[in-house]
Design a protein around this nucleic acid. Structure first.
Lengths: 131, 131
DNA sequence: ATACTTGTACTAGTATCGTAGTACAATCCG
DNA sequence: CGGATTGTACTACGATACTAGTACAAGTAT
């Protein structure tokens, strides 16, 4: 029940962002499965020692992103939408955007796309991400 | 003399960040060469319609990064340090850091390193960055 | 030496962001 | 219907970030 996620208030990354990432990651790695219910806004808020609104904002944002579904009086659940083709398409677009920003930033630092590729390649061998 | 850089005050990216990126990029692409003098703090400030302090902060930061050198009463110049082995090493480390953040972010979105590689590969063919 | 040009330090104001507090609305369950 | 549980809307406070203003210090050149 407890210890689902963990936040670091001292970390420069804002709480809502930490939580968002944690939830996304939990879903991506299968620790939260489709249809599964997340803790209630208030419950998670006390667990994380955070205001309920902060949790609510995260849930709302993730619902807009289509990976959560919330029903008043019932709770918040992992949606199945993130497996549908349309969502896959959006997801691909997000990937493009992220890569865009990444490439731009790296080029501004004087790195070429090849440099990035090299770095990623060497990383690919070490960390095997299990999805 | 003028039209060296251009900033967008309306853009969400803060002015100092835009300028930093622009200078780094100009150096990386060779539009600013080693030893070349940059506009004075005040001159660039009026050109960009920005406070002199904003420019000064950028110059100072870039000096800490070792890619600029400033001499009081004289001006600010492109340093040669960014070609030395030690700086190359730091630069490599920065690349690692950037890639780290990138991979982390992407994984939190449920992408694998391979997805990133694919995207980058397809990009590599389109944009040829000339260094 | 003195005037001028350069970068720098300190301060302050403004906007934005992140979080919390409080009150409200929808749904469920008895 | 009525109480309990859920998510939501609105407001406000605190902190941080960004930029500007002003005064200062270090160097150059005449």
């Amino acid at each position: 029940m407890s210890q689902i996620f963990s936040l670091s208030p001292s970390h420069p990354m804002p709480l809502y962002a930490q939580l968002t990432r944690a939830i996304r990651f939990a879903i991506a790695t299968g620790r939260l499965r489709v249809g599964e219910q997340l803790p209630t806004v208030r419950q998670l808020a006390v667990d994380l020692r955070v205001n309920a609104n902060t949790v609510a904002k995260v849930y709302a944002e993730l619902e807009r992103s289509g990976i959560l579904e919330t029903r008043r009086g019932v709770g918040t659940f992992v949606s199945a939408r993130h497996l549908t083709p349309v969502h896959r398409e959006e997801h691909e677009k997000h990937l493009k955007d992220v890569v865009d920003r990444f490439v731009e930033e790296a080029c501004a630092m004087g790195f070429s796309v090849d440099d990035l590729l090299d770095q990623l390649q060497s990383r690919r061998n070490k960390e095997t991400i299990n999805v």
